[in-house]
């Protein structure tokens, strides 16, 4: 199957692009940048401390339970279960990392 031939260039688009965008004056551009930077004040980040402590508590409880389960199992079975638990922990960590990456900017 032969590839589809490229579409012919659009003359109107080429003509408009040759004209280019209108540029504001350099002085205006510099003044605008200064104003935006000067007036933009990032809001102080107020950490949600209760949530953070609750999260740590839950993680501690889950970790303790996992440790309890592993310690209660015979050595052979614990050896099989440990990699699965490690994978679950790493997976959860990965999801949390993705959430952190996708979080909208903290601005007000």
């Amino acid at each position: 199957m032969s590839p589809r031939p490229p579409a012919p260039p659009d003359p109107v688009k080429a003509l408009l692009q040759a004209q280019g965008l209108q540029q504001p004056s350099a002085a205006f551009s510099a003044a605008l940048t200064r104003q935006v930077v000067a007036r933009y004040a990032a809001p102080p980040t107020v950490p949600y401390r209760a949530g953070a402590w609750l999260g740590k508590l839950i993680l501690l409880a889950l970790g303790s339970l996992l440790g309890l389960v592993l310690s209660g199992l015979p050595r052979a079975e614990a050896g099989i279960l440990a990699p699965a638990l490690a994978a679950a922990v790493l997976g959860l960590g990965g999801v949390l990392w993705l959430f952190e990456q996708q979080r909208p900017p903290a601005a007000g």
Partner: peptide, 29 residues
């Protein structure tokens, strides 16, 4: 850039302004 601008980084704010001002100005004109 938005994330950095959200943290108040001047360089990110400057880049955002520089990136979009030309078309914004053309639209306004």
């Amino acid at each position: 850039l938005l994330r950095q601008a959200g943290q108040g980084q001047p360089q990110a704010l400057t880049q955002l302004v520089q990136r979009y001002q030309a078309l914004a100005y053309t639209v306004a004109v």
